[in-house]
Nucleic acid binder design. Structure first.
Lengths: 189, 189
DNA sequence: ACGTCTTCCTAAGGGTCTTAGGCAAATTCT
DNA sequence: AGAATTTGCCTAAGACCCTTAGGAAGACGT
């Protein structure tokens, strides 16, 4: 029996690739074992169970996404930063639909705390530095931005915008214009 | 063999209830058969396969949601209508998380066309009548609103907002305030 | 070289989806 | 009403998937 050199890191990366190819929900322990040329049961020396594998995929995707967003917003401020953040987010979701779905998975509290989700929130707050929002408005705006980005990308990916000829890219840009305006003219309580 | 009185309508409703109880992805042909006290194979006289069942759940949810939104926005205009629409949407998603997940399922073109999705788009456009937006801005705004509502509700349901003490209800209201402002001051191209 | 830990295997149980073929109940036809 | 047809449910069985238990052989430290 020559060993296949499986490690939990290689498993996670392969699972992420598989997810981007066939969809997050179609990633299976069996398919992954096939890809590595080992029996399904062998993977259980590296992962606890299927849920554990998916959690690792989520952590990977959150970290990658945070890195890309960080690189995109570095050295930018104001609307520039907003557009860069949003663009990086949407770009990642389109290039890596399976990973993106993994990133949106529900994580239990401690796992979420150990994830890059905190960096995402921090970076969103960083964007808002250009808009001078005091708490609790800042938190409200963080939630609004997170919802907006995720919702738009999610509907776009699901094909919900394909029933109208209007260019989606243009709608995206206009939405960011409107978002920028909303942040600049944040309504007083 | 006394017949159990299974019909495709009763199956769909039971599946929807099951989804709200245990989650959309945990709705299974087997679980549904158990709930009706029949064997799994028996259900295939009523549904084509598991995907067919999920599609029926999606159509049910889309129709129910459209009905509730329609009732909510009737007789309202402007920000009133916006808040009523958004409130009905979010309320449905929270009362019926499984159905809501079903409604967000990807439908093939013809099924989507036969669904209540068109009514959703129409009603969103109706909201915008209070804001005097010409095409293509109107379509951009429809997409923005759809994304915003879905994204916020989706992140909230997934527990993404629970890492901060700020009242989610308050964030929701402030987000609608900001959205109203964005629509009133829609940026020129 | 020896013992230990790790990785992989076989075996096996349980769950889900789906099709095929049969019997009996319900419905329709004459 | 009785016969013919359709419909609803069943058993049986195949194809996957997830997971655990126990064993053998490679890798590694002493």
């Amino acid at each position: 029996m020559v060993r296949a050199g499986v490690t939990v890191e290689r498993l996670t990366r392969a699972a992420a690739e598989l997810a981007d190819e066939v969809g997050f929900d179609k990633v299976t322990v069996a398919a992954l074992a096939r890809r590595f040329g080992v029996k399904e049961a062998s993977l259980y020396s590296h992962i606890r169970n299927a849920h554990d594998l998916k959690t690792r995929m989520a952590l990977l995707a959150l970290a990658e996404l945070a890195d890309e967003v960080a690189a995109a917003i570095a050295g930018r401020a104001g609307k520039d930063a907003l557009v860069a953040f949003a663009g990086a987010y949407r770009s990642y979701a389109k290039r890596h639909p399976g990973r993106y779905a993994a990133a949106r998975m529900e994580l239990d509290l401690e796992t979420a705390r150990a994830s890059a989700a905190g960096r995402h929130a921090e970076m969103t707050r960083a964007i808002l530095r250009g808009y001078e929002l005091a708490e609790p408005d800042q938190t409200d705006a963080v939630r609004m931005l997170g919802g907006m980005f995720h919702g738009f990308v999610s509907l776009e990916t699901a094909g919900a915008f394909q029933h109208h000829p209007r260019d989606i890219e243009a709608s995206w840009n206009r939405t960011l214009d409107a978002l920028d305006a909303a942040l600049r003219n944040w309504p007083p309580a």
